[in-house]
Computed example of a mutant assay.
Amino acid sequence: MAEDLKIITATDKAEQYRSLIPQIEALITGETDQVANLANIAAALKEQFKWFWVGFYLVKEGELVLGPFQGPVACTRIQKGKGVCGASWAQKQTLIVPDVDAFPGHIACATASRSEIVLPLFQGDEVIGVLDVDSEHLAHFDEVDAKYLKEIINLLHG
């Protein structure tokens, strides 16, 4: 597949996700390198939605370590249970945070980040990483984002 995305500017974000998902699937199908796939997913999401930061943290030696991402420099390592990413890992669930300043123990890697969604990446029952997305707007993420971002990370197991 050509590595160009067809970006749509629909106001309905579900429609944007539905357009993007098959393109991401085409990008990663047949590619066995995890880093390459995570990098392309982060780039595609950033390009489509213009979020402040989008990327992955991977579990390595008992902590989350920064993986492929798009956006400003980020925290390199996050302990289990710390911040939104560490909490998502520990709880094994998606966390939607409308105001990061109100989240107990939030790690401010970038002060411009105002809201966040984090989804765990599973291998079987084990969390092997998280997808972290930050916005400079309050209350930017909702269940629509959670639904479609989960579909996207599930493509990694395809």
Rank of each mutant, 00 (worst) to 15 (best):
80 K>G: 00
108 A>V: 13
35 V>H: 11
28 I>Q: 02
32 T>I: 14
132 D>L: 00
158 G>I: 05
10 A>F: 04
142 D>R: 01
142 D>P: 09
95 L>A: 05
12 D>C: 01
102 A>Q: 14
83 G>W: 11
124 G>M: 09
73 V>P: 13
8 I>S: 06
118 V>K: 09
12 D>S: 02
120 P>A: 01
56 F>H: 02
69 F>K: 07
53 W>H: 07
124 G>W: 14
45 L>C: 04
58 L>S: 09
48 Q>N: 04
129 G>N: 05
146 A>C: 08
70 Q>A: 06
126 E>V: 15
127 V>I: 06
19 S>K: 04
48 Q>V: 13
116 E>P: 15
105 G>A: 05
101 D>T: 13
146 A>Y: 11
2 A>E: 07
14 A>T: 04
108 A>D: 14
134 D>Y: 13
118 V>T: 11
82 K>M: 14
71 G>E: 02
68 P>D: 03
154 N>R: 14
50 K>C: 01
130 V>F: 15
37 N>C: 06
57 Y>V: 00
149 L>D: 11
87 A>F: 08
62 G>P: 09
129 G>M: 09
143 E>Y: 15
123 Q>H: 03
23 Q>W: 12
88 S>T: 10
89 W>T: 02
85 C>W: 11
23 Q>E: 10
69 F>P: 08
86 G>R: 02
140 H>G: 02
99 D>N: 10
21 I>Q: 08
66 L>Q: 04
71 G>W: 05
112 A>N: 13
102 A>G: 03
38 L>G: 06
51 W>D: 08
110 A>H: 15
56 F>Q: 01
109 C>N: 06
133 V>T: 13
62 G>H: 03
156 L>E: 03
1 M>R: 12
150 K>V: 10
130 V>L: 13
89 W>R: 01
57 Y>L: 03
15 E>H: 03
18 R>K: 13
92 K>E: 14
51 W>V: 11
15 E>A: 02
60 K>C: 00
126 E>Q: 15
